[in-house]
Nucleic acid binder design. Sequence first.
DNA 1: CGTTGTACGTGCGGTAGCGCACATAACCGC
DNA 2: GCGGTTATGTGCGCTACCGCACGTACAACG
Lengths: 240, 240
Amino acid sequence: MVAKMPTQQTPWQNHLLASLPKETFERIAPHLELVSMPLGEVLYESGDQLHHVYFPTTAIVSLHYVMENGASAEISGVGNEGVVGISLFMGGNTTPSRAAVCTGGYGYRLKAQVMMEEFNRAGPMMKLMLRYTQALITQMSQTAVCNRHHSMEQQMCRWLLQTLDRLPSQELIMTQELIASMLGVRREGITETAGDLQRAGLISYRRGHITVLSRAGLEKHSCECYDVVRKEFHRLLKEA
Amino acid sequence: MVAKMPTQQTPWQNHLLASLPKETFERIAPHLELVSMPLGEVLYESGDQLHHVYFPTTAIVSLHYVMENGASAEISGVGNEGVVGISLFMGGNTTPSRAAVCTGGYGYRLKAQVMMEEFNRAGPMMKLMLRYTQALITQMSQTAVCNRHHSMEQQMCRWLLQTLDRLPSQELIMTQELIASMLGVRREGITETAGDLQRAGLISYRRGHITVLSRAGLEKHSCECYDVVRKEFHRLLKEA
DNA sequence: CGTTGTACGTGCGGTAGCGCACATAACCGC
DNA sequence: GCGGTTATGTGCGCTACCGCACGTACAACG
């Protein structure tokens, strides 16, 4: 894999950091630490105490739950629109889920203590974090519903779209195995569905790379969940 | 149906209200309004502005999402351990989900403005609400995972146990149709599963009533999700 | 430039849960 | 105690997805 330089990373690539008022941002800016977030890195395990919160810029993190029998399912993804580690300020400090990087890249992290100090000012940072948390709740809820009622093809389209929204290009570096484990389905199922989507001209792929050819097509094959979540994020986080 | 008097209702029957420090509780107490919450009442629809938050005492409320095609699935339940309307203080004021009473009973409600004033003191009320919200997030996450991986029988056992924990007796006033709509499955599926559980001696039922005979048995037939959620609620809300 | 690890393709039987169409039976009001 | 309403029981074909067991082929590296 290419050891890409942190090509022009800035905190503003993260939408939450970008939407903080100048004063607040400048207070935390000195404490923002650029970190590489390589594929597979585990930011926290189920039950771990949090020492940092992470604001991804180019990386994408998957919050998922690993069951007793080893099976797992994604609860929510977090990319440049969000932050990893909300349980810090929500008061629990840990969660029963795990956070792992599913698309390598960069992000900024902030020490727990710094975050808490800013949060406890009960100002813009707190308001923003709470709004983001509510958006995250919507995404989790929708995941629950989607898992219950929608077909694998619909879910895969939704997932591709959500991932695409967090990336600058039309290409995902992503094996079918990985997608399967995100959606909590069999790898073979993804192979078949991906084949269908390719034959339909919506995507093309080769060994670990998926290129989206028709975003509109994916939206048509996706379930309503994609739109519900997207609109809710927009509603909650547009201003502020 | 018996038109039960509000037999000895007190705000302390709601665990959240009960765990507020005296000073905080006394400030809001004059504004707590006892309300009857009959089966089927909708506290808010998708997108509704919230005018109150509700602290159930004997009622149980179901937060669920209704899809475009009319199908639905429960995201989380709320009973005497919780509060309905978190999106008020999280900043969104609305959610894409719906809250409906699925076990009739009573609760206390608080005007939105009063709740916000208390929340904005950034004191015990805020801390408590955020902790509860984190617990709710765990429940929603676990619902997502459960929907993906666990059998109908496991899910039904989990659901019965969670409902039981919110009630004083071993009896649920509940049709199979209603349970089915909560779990987002066919009514016939519940009929069959309920039959199995009855034959196994774990429950007994008649037209709209389910009596739990063996809690331990249900726990054995349930998935890990019940325990994960229960422990997390306990961890987050035991003190404070 | 071939070897090898890893990703992807395919087939096949099994099954949980769905959708529909009814049959039965408990409770409710009169 | 009678009739109607609503809850529950049952059967049947169907489909999506699973679990397993392979075969194939890319692409990276020596």
